[in-house]
């Protein structure tokens, strides 16, 4: 009986080791990148050239194949950051702070992309690039939360204090995620409801939604590649005084 929690605790500690993360995840990257390229390649070509035009929006609806993955990752990235914040505050796991620091600019980039592609899509569909409706405003707040967390980290000199402050801001900001999700139901809006739902079949035909699914999966892998590479860099920077990083710097060619 006593061995199980011990074994679990050892696994947890090993997973929290920055060196373990660096060495374990390195070989995953080429495979993840190849799978991402394949999924996004097929999804994008299919979506742009083979899916039929929307009967109302015509060909402008093809923006969906990048807008939905970007908007999804903007929110998933934030939730990941908040989970890392909890892990950092509860277990003081340094690796969680490194992931949190890495996700912020990547999530901000996807939030920007979601806003930009949504804005461009809005012009031919709604007749305007921008409107202060609930969905768009709450996603803009998400972008400011990301930028705020990045700024907070730069503003606080001691890394431990910066990590804790960012964790608290990330956790408090999670309240914005359900607001984004339900904004299209709670307030009058131009924005259409979600394309995919767990409980019902998609309203569009398979020839339109399959490429979207491929792109959502592909962008997830792309996000994973970026977060893994970013965290590995962050590990090197923060562990630069340790023996193994020093050896790695001496051994590896730039």
């Amino acid at each position: 009986m006593k061995y199980i929690p011990d074994a679990l605790r050892r696994l947890w500690h090993r997973m929290g080791s920055p060196r373990w993360f660096y060495e374990t995840t390195g070989p995953w990257v080429p495979w993840l990148a190849a799978a991402a390229a394949l999924l996004i390649g097929v999804g994008t070509v299919w979506g742009l050239a083979y899916a039929p035009p929307d009967y109302l929006q015509g060909d402008s609806f093809r923006i969906i194949y990048i807008h939905v993955p970007a908007a999804y990752l903007a929110q998933a990235g934030y939730i990941l950051m908040a989970i890392c914040g909890v892990v950092l505050l509860v277990w003081r796991m340094k690796l969680a702070d490194m992931v949190m620091a890495t996700v912020a600019p990547i999530g901000a980039a996807f939030t920007f992309l979601a806003l930009a592609t949504g804005s461009i899509w809005g012009k031919p569909t709604w007749g305007t690039y921008w409107i202060w409706d609930a969905r768009i405003t709450s996603v803009l707040i998400l972008l400011f939360l990301y930028l705020g967390i990045m700024g907070l980290r730069r503003a606080i000199e001691r890394p431990e204090a910066a990590g804790r402050a960012c964790a608290i801001l990330a956790i408090v900001g999670v309240i914005n995620i359900p607001i984004i999700k339900y904004s299209v139901d709670w307030w009058m809006t131009l924005h259409q409801p979600a394309t995919f739902s767990v409980t019902s079949a998609p309203a569009m035909p398979a020839i339109m939604w399959v490429p979207l699914l491929l792109n959502v999966l592909g962008f997830n892998l792309l996000f994973a590649v970026s977060v893994i590479q970013g965290t590995r860099t962050e590990v090197l920077i923060r562990e630069r005084r340790t023996r193994w990083v020093t050896d790695l710097c001496r051994g590896e060619q730039a």
Partner: peptide, 23 residues
């Protein structure tokens, strides 16, 4: 793109830039 080429291609170009940045 049925007259919507400007919007579609700008969206995909921006995506390329952002994806390039995160990688």
């Amino acid at each position: 793109m049925g007259g919507h080429g400007f919007y579609v291609w700008w969206s995909y170009l921006l995506t390329l830039v952002v994806v390039g940045f995160i990688l």
